[in-house]
């Protein structure tokens, strides 16, 4: 049984069709203010994580891993482009308007994706947690009554399945590999763990978008089961560290110190040339 009532596609976009941010922009689908806010949360997560992973290219432990991490970063930036393009339809803004000309406090990313790369173990710890969450999220969102969100999620979930596999394979190797790798991946998991709870926190926007958005709390059980089972197989403990409390509303005003630096770098060139096309 799907969580959502199915609805005839009201736009040119339907699940399974190959979509692009151009096709979303041209589809005539217009997001409501609430839907746009929701799409922006998801898009910002994907964008910020892609930005983080992009740093690894030409720095990974193996050439194969340069390729793997850039694959994941590419998938994520693809999701970000779809989601931000769709969000932008509510305000007549493009994906780039939203990515490059929104100030720090208007981003809606979660703190987990903003965390520093650290060593490879820390990056993989973040990948495991986020990919498991994102997989469950997109799987459920593919049944959304909003056809554009459903189509985006339907495409993205297949990609994220690989991200989960990639992270899980590495967790096993690092957990069961050497003393050092075990120590490092355990440290990485501890570093990322305080930001887990936020992923599964509901708020009023979610209440208002019943049937359209996925309720974050509904994902917790499956995502955490997935994470725990990989950690158990890798003979790693589930970290026992306190959750970092939110300073304000979830995904609104409650963000990490890192965000400003990430955006300063990402937006620097675009902001030097406002109005320019590239």
């Amino acid at each position: 049984m799907s969580t959502f009532a199915s609805q005839e596609s009201a736009t040119k976009i339907s699940a399974g069709e190959s979509i692009s941010s151009e096709s979303i922009a041209e589809s005539g689908a217009t997001a409501s203010e609430d839907v746009a806010q929701y799409a922006m949360r998801l898009g910002d997560d994907a964008l910020i994580l892609s930005q983080r992973l992009g740093w690894w290219i030409a720095r990974a432990p193996e050439l194969e891993e340069d390729i793997a991490l850039s694959n994941i970063a590419l998938d994520l930036i693809g999701h970000a482009r779809f989601l931000l393009t769709y969000a932008g339809t509510a305000w007549n803004k493009s994906e780039d308007d939203l990515a490059y000309f929104r100030p720090e406090e208007e981003f809606r990313s979660c703190r987990l994706v903003e965390q520093e790369n650290g060593d490879f173990g820390q990056t993989i710890a973040r990948q495991l947690i986020f990919s498991m969450y994102q997989y469950e999220l997109y799987k459920a969102l593919a049944e959304s009554s909003d056809p554009t969100l459903a189509a985006i999620a339907d495409k993205a979930v297949k990609e994220v399945e690989y991200h989960v596999d990639h992270a899980s394979q590495w967790i096993l190797r690092l957990g069961l590999g050497t003393e050092e790798s075990r120590r490092r991946i355990a440290a990485g998991l501890e570093y990322m763990w305080p930001y887990v709870e936020e992923l599964f926190t509901d708020d009023e926007l979610i209440d208002r978008l019943d049937g359209v958005a996925v309720r974050p709390s509904s994902l917790e059980e499956a995502a955490m089961r997935g994470i725990r089972s990989v950690l158990a197989e890798a003979e790693l403990e589930v970290p026992e560290v306190a959750q970092a409390r939110l300073t304000s509303e979830v995904r609104d005003g409650s963000y990490s110190e890192h965000r400003g630096y990430i955006l300063a770098e990402m937006q620097s060139l675009a902001r030097q040339h406002p109005g320019a096309t590239w």
Binding site: G54, R81, L269, W278
Partner: peptide, 10 residues
């Protein structure tokens, strides 16, 4: 990390 549009970054 500094590409000036998401398309170019991709």
């Amino acid at each position: 990390t500094r590409a000036p549009s998401l398309k170019r970054k991709s």
